[in-house]
């Protein structure tokens, strides 16, 4: 394995700012702006998990969205394997799109209710132009469903007849089916019950070992983030207040806010 210094991170960003216009004057000029995140730089290496913790409104989801190109940043740059995403040609942008996948908090909300599980999981294959052959798609979908622990019987079901845990498994399968290098998990377990939460966390860990995927794991739950992450970023009001190895950050918090967060979280 190469040392950390000559490794190019899968995904990184430099000095990201994101501003929203919250009020305009009568003729459409900007009156007040709201800074969602300010001056954020971070990186995620191959096969590692970077956890982002913070309270609601701290900008953690914004970072995930910007890194996955769901939102555009006001200033700053996002790099995929050292390449600026904004200046990519179509070919490499497609590659970036394929390799950076998402899992969202509300699994049902991120699925088309009229699609069957087969269509949901198979859609990225079509959209990213990997294959159009229905047979190949079904084979791939079944293979990935087996990996995430979904039985074949749900293949033709629609999201509303699945339980929360099953839905989140479908979402994970949809992200995995194109073999991405990194998955951005935005609060993937906070809508689930604790017993199902443990199942999903174990699954994510197993998949990481097996397929060498990197995760950007966004959550407000310190216990969960601490368990799954190698490195942790603590955010408050749009700023990074602390960053470091997981076991160090929470065991020995340097920042006042991190300490408060650990104190308030009833995990012990």
């Amino acid at each position: 394995m190469s040392s950390a210094y000559d490794m190019i991170p899968v995904l990184s960003c430099e000095n990201i700012d994101k501003e929203y216009v919250t009020e305009r004057t009568w003729n459409g000029k900007t009156k007040t702006i709201f800074k969602a995140v300010e001056n954020i730089s971070l990186y995620i290496n191959e096969g590692e998990t970077l956890g982002i913790v913070g309270e609601s409104g701290s900008g953690k989801s914004t970072i995930g969205d910007i890194l996955g190109n769901l939102k555009s940043q006001t200033r700053g740059k996002v790099f995929y394997r050292g390449q600026d995403v904004a200046e990519m040609d179509e070919e490499s942008f497609r590659k970036y799109r394929k390799n950076v996948q998402f899992i969202f908090q509300d699994p049902k909300g991120s699925m088309n209710p009229y699609y069957s599980v087969l269509e949901i999981i198979g859609e990225p294959l079509k959209m990213l132009g990997i294959t159009d052959d229905e047979e190949v798609i079904e084979r791939k979908v079944l293979g990935i469903m087996d990996k995430v622990g979904l039985s074949k019987s749900v293949l033709n079901k629609r999201p509303d007849s699945l339980s929360g845990g099953q839905c989140q498994r479908v979402a994970i399968a949809r992200a995995l089916v194109v073999r991405p290098e990194i998955i951005i998990c935005d609060e993937p377990v906070s809508a689930l019950d604790v017993s199902v939460q443990a199942q999903i966390l174990n699954l994510l860990k197993d998949l990481q070992e097996e397929m060498d995927i990197a995760y950007l794991f966004i959550s407000h739950d310190i216990g969960v983030v601490n368990y799954i992450s190698n490195r942790i970023v603590v955010m408050n009001k749009g700023h990074i207040v602390e960053m470091g190895r997981a076991n160090v950050v929470f065991a020995n918090p340097k920042d006042e806010y991190t300490r408060k967060l650990v104190e308030c979280s009833f995990v012990n």
């Binding site: 966390l201 216990g223 601490n226 995990v267």
Partner: peptide, 13 residues
């Protein structure tokens, strides 16, 4: 099943 702060990383939940 609740991940605690002194959990070992290698340990499965």
């Amino acid at each position: 099943v609740i991940p605690s702060l002194n959990i070992k990383k290698e340990e499965r939940l």
